[in-house]
Every structure is written in C-alpha cells, then in structure tokens.
Design a protein around this nucleic acid. Structure first.
Lengths: 140, 140
DNA sequence: CGGCATCCCGATAGATACTG
DNA sequence: CAGTATCTATCGGGATGCCG
C-alpha cells in the first residue's frame, strides 16, 4: 500500500464522524471477537500454526469445549484455517489466514496498551477503592 | 509519523516476543474493557462529555443498570471522570480522562477494522454455512 | 434527572464422559 | 490426538421499582 493511499484512508476515516467510534460498528466487531477466547487464539496463532492440544496447553485456562467452539467460529469467519494431515496419529493444525492477520494488527495495539498501562489501572483501582471505603476522609 | 518511524515501530514490536500477543496481558485488558459496554462508552465519550441520560439514549440498547455499573468500573480504573454540577436540576457529566483517551486510540483501530471488514466476514460466514449445511445468524 | 437494589432469565462456559 | 455430547453452574445483564 502506498504512503499516500494509507494517509488518505486514515484522514477519510478520521474526518467522517459517522465512522469515528460508531457504536453499532464497534458493537459488531465486539460481538464477533469480543468473547473470552477469540482474540487470545488469534494472538497465539499469529506466531505460527498450532495443533489443537498445543493450543489447549498454551491458552491459559481454556477448556476443550471452548477451544473447539471458538476455533469453529473463527474458522467460520475466515480468520483461521483448519488444516488436516491424514497421518497415523491424526494431526490437525490451525493457522491464521491472511485475513485474520489483518485483525492481528489492532489486537496487538490493544495488547500493547494493556502491557503499558497495567500498573496505572491497578493503582487507580486501589485509590478508588480506598476513597470509597473511607467516604472521602482525607484528614491525616 | 514518518515512513521510517512507522517501520521501526512495527519491527520493534514484532521482534520482541515477550510482548508480542502475550495471552495473559491480553486477557487482563479483555477482563477490564472486554465486556459488552466499556469500549462503546469510551468511544462515545471520546467525542465529548455526556450526561447519564444522554448516554442512555445514545448507546444502542444499554439499560440503566448496566450504564451505571459500566461507568463505575470505568471511573474506578481512571478511564472516565464523573463531574457533578450542583444545579437546580442536578446535572452529572461523564468525560474521558487523558488516560482514557490513550485507550481510545487502539479502540478506534479496532472500529476501523470492523468497518472495513464487515462485508468480508458476512461473505465468509455465508460460504462456511453453505458448505457445512447448517444455518446460522446473519451479520447485522 | 441520576442511580442504586431486587428479581430473574438465558447465554457462556466448565466438567465429565464418550467417539473416531 | 482431536474432537463431540450432555449436563450443570455461574453470572452478565435486562426489567422494574424506589429513593435522593
């Protein structure tokens, strides 16, 4: 993509207030990938193809069932591809599609935000809870 | 941002596997803002301060209860600030904090992705469902 | 107008057992 | 190994009512 085309796209989307943080559009993407596991799996698979059991071990806390369901929905949306190798111990690998990789970009942005601001949030919560508990009593 | 700076940023983030799509870090941010309404509200408030009832009308489908709960949690995390104007008809406005505004950026990236790819997802689902033989819901 | 408390339902997701 | 099926519990979140 050319520099100019990219700049154009950004400016266009920023300039049109109908797109800027449109609640309905945002809702649509959240309904699709805003569940508990989709983005996690997209993130993991972004590093390379993985097998079912491998994902089961790597995704912290996911169950067999949810892994199956989430992978199916991702496959359905064309974000992930399922590849079957008909071997003697049957093997199945999942990989991100080129389309899925385009989603990986904004996801990474979100992950980066999370990494950068975990401490701030923790501190804010602490302060808020303390203030609420003492009903704003700030006398020494 | 310059072409070079952008390239640098991408390479740096891709090169550091400690940050790249860490499942736990991603989970932490999803636990905070991955619920049904947080990102919607952040997005709405990004455009400017809004009153409680105003948000109630503008956020599509939110209930009184969930608006209250979500605003509280956002306030607790320091993403949103609650401002009370002691007037004759009491008035309360919510606004994004500077900290909240930093989150607004990755959220916008996600919204843009959604807007750009709604049609693709719809098509993918249709194709998948047709192939599998079962019918699922449509993309709103 | 702003916002908490109560009740209740349905979706989400965990545990377990079974199949190819 | 790679799932599927079922059963169940939890809880997010909607509806409603009350209160400042």
């Amino acid at each position: 993509m050319s520099h100019q085309a990219e700049a154009d796209r950004v400016l266009r989307s920023l300039g049109r207030d109908c797109l800027e943080h449109d609640p309905d559009v945002l809702r649509s993407v959240l309904d699709r990938v805003g569940d508990k596991w989709s983005l996690i799996l997209i993130g993991l698979l972004d590093k390379g193809p993985m097998r079912f059991t491998e994902l089961l071990r790597t995704a912290p806390g996911i169950s067999r069932r949810m892994l199956t369901l989430t992978l199916r929905s991702l496959e359905r949306d064309g974000l992930v591809k399922r590849v079957i190798y008909p071997e003697s111990p049957p093997r199945v690998e999942y990989e991100v599609t080129p389309f899925g990789r385009t989603l990986s970009e904004p996801v990474l942005a979100l992950t980066r935000w999370a990494a950068d601001n975990q401490d701030t949030i923790r501190a804010n919560r602490h302060a808020f809870d303390k203030a609420a508990g003492f009903d704003g009593d700030d006398l020494g």
